[in-house]
Amino acid sequence: MYRLNIKKLGFAFGLTGALIYLGCMIVMVTAGKEGSIAFFNSLLHGLDTSNIIRMDVSLLEAFFGIIQMFILWWLIGACIAVFYNVHLKNK
């Protein structure tokens, strides 16, 4: 079995999370409020998102959201790699 590179897997997860966040932003900009509600309601199996969707997000807030998402998913990917590698050592 191969060991996972912790930094590379973390980076891959981080970029994926940032791309998902960016995709969400694109949906909200192009579809508008009602279209976003319909999209996310169908994506979340009918969960009503009308009360939580906010369209007045500033560019600075969106920028910090992408950075936070990258950091969060980097940590998740790094943890997965660490746990995987530790499991290999125990066998």
Rank of each mutant, 00 (worst) to 15 (best):
M1V: 09
Y2D: 13
Y2P: 14
Y2C: 05
R3H: 12
L4Y: 09
K7Q: 08
K7I: 10
K7R: 08
K7S: 13
F11K: 07
F11E: 06
F13G: 01
L15I: 15
L15M: 14
T16F: 13
T16D: 01
G17F: 08
G17K: 02
A18T: 11
Y21L: 07
G23W: 02
G23K: 00
C24W: 01
M25I: 11
I26V: 15
I26D: 03
V27M: 05
V27W: 02
T30H: 00
A31T: 02
A31I: 00
K33Q: 13
K33I: 09
F40S: 07
F40Y: 15
F40G: 05
S42V: 06
S42H: 07
S42L: 07
L44C: 08
H45C: 04
G46Q: 07
L47T: 12
L47D: 05
L47N: 08
D48E: 09
N51A: 14
I52W: 11
I53D: 07
I53E: 04
M55D: 01
M55C: 08
D56Y: 07
D56G: 12
S58D: 08
S58V: 10
E61R: 12
F64S: 09
G65N: 03
G65T: 03
G65R: 05
F70R: 05
I71E: 00
I71D: 00
L72H: 00
L72G: 01
W73I: 02
W73Q: 01
W74S: 05
W74P: 01
G77S: 01
A78Q: 06
A78P: 09
I80M: 08
F83N: 10
F83L: 15
N85T: 12
V86E: 13
H87F: 15
L88P: 06
N90Q: 14
K91F: 11
